[in-house]
């Protein structure tokens, strides 16, 4: 088996804007084949970091290497192998989808055939809109065109900065499927940033969480959370009694520390009905039994229960 190469290595990266430390001594590694989740609330420093990876912003301190090469010294070589969608997928509105794709392909140093361009557009579902000017496109169509542009030169690394911003649920699902497709079927390494936790949770193999420019945690998604394990919050008419009942019964192992007077259990989704049946049988009147996303909860913990996480879960 070929040893896994480090695609992105970031060491002690810092960037200050006037008095604001946008990125504060961040280090992380993205390995070949990763779908690397870059997680943090708005303003946490995700975009600044990504822009430094793409040479849009000059770091104050720290090293960035991609494909084992120093970004500062081998910029052109590196960027030839990178495709990116940075925030909004803005392209030339006065050009057609076809012309935009062709133009950016040439900027990336390749001259695709008409056939190749049409295939690329078909892949993102824009085959029938190829000749239309981009100013007539919806946000979702622009996003898909942006991705087609990021992929047109067949890069090894794809960086997607907030790719689901402004998309409807179908659009979000499309992007998720596309990321999985790129990773599994086309062996691309993907770095995807988001403040939408569910998106990261469902696709990321590894992730980093940053807050206020600082790294909070980095690691394999499987280590940080088990997708099969679900955190369940329980509310009853008498939580005290329920707590005692559970602590002394077969569910004791699943019990988590109590928060805000609510009871939390970590268990497999399939076990939720069984838990409900057990509580009813024990004569405990259940008010609510709610499975919560595991990563959200994890996020809740590491960022000490930010309001935005709450607002997202609603």
């Amino acid at each position: 088996m070929v040893p896994m190469q480090d695609i992105i290595t970031v060491n002690n990266l810092s960037k200050k804007f006037r008095n604001l430390k946008a990125v504060d001594n961040i280090s992380f590694t993205v390995r070949e084949g990763d779908v690397y989740g870059f997680l943090g609330q708005n303003g946490a420093g995700k975009s600044t970091t990504i822009r430094m990876l793409l040479t849009l912003i000059e770091p104050d301190a720290g090293d960035i290497s991609l494909f084992g090469l120093s970004l500062a010294r081998h910029r052109h070589e590196i960027l030839r192998q990178v495709g990116a969608v940075i925030e909004k997928p803005d392209v030339y509105k006065y050009l057609s989808a076809y012309d935009n794709l062709k133009l950016f392909a040439r900027l990336s140093g390749i001259k695709p055939t008409e056939q190749q361009i049409r295939e690329q557009l078909a892949m993102v579902g824009l085959a029938d809109r190829a000749a239309d000017k981009v100013k007539t496109f919806s946000q979702g169509m622009k996003q898909r065109l942006g991705i087609a542009i990021a992929l047109v030169h067949d890069p090894a690394l794809i960086i997607l900065d907030e790719p689901t911003n402004g998309l409807d649920p179908q659009g979000i699902a499309d992007i998720r499927n596309l990321i999985l497709h790129l990773s599994r079927d086309r062996n691309k390494t993907v770095l995807v940033s988001s403040h939408l936790l569910t998106e990261i949770e469902q696709v990321a193999t590894r992730l980093i969480i940053i807050d206020k420019g600082k790294k909070l945690v980095e690691g394999a998604a499987a280590d940080l959370f088990d997708p099969a394990q679900t955190l369940v919050s329980l509310d009853t008419l008498n939580n005290q009694q329920a707590m005692e009942q559970l602590a002394n019964g077969p569910w004791a192992g699943a019990l988590q520390p109590q928060r805000d007077g609510q009871i939390y259990l970590k268990l497999h989704r399939n076990q939720v009905p069984q838990l409900h049946a057990y509580l009813v049988q024990a004569g405990i009147p259940v008010l609510a039994l709610q499975p919560r996303h595991s990563l959200e909860d994890y996020f809740l913990q590491v960022t000490s229960g930010k309001q935005y996480v709450q607002s997202y879960t609603n």
Binding site: R51, L54, L79, I86, D90, F104, S108
Partner: peptide
């Protein structure tokens, strides 16, 4: 227009 950032991630 927002195209500058994409333009500047190209290899030149």
């Amino acid at each position: 227009m927002g195209t500058l950032r994409l333009l500047l991630t190209k290899p030149f």
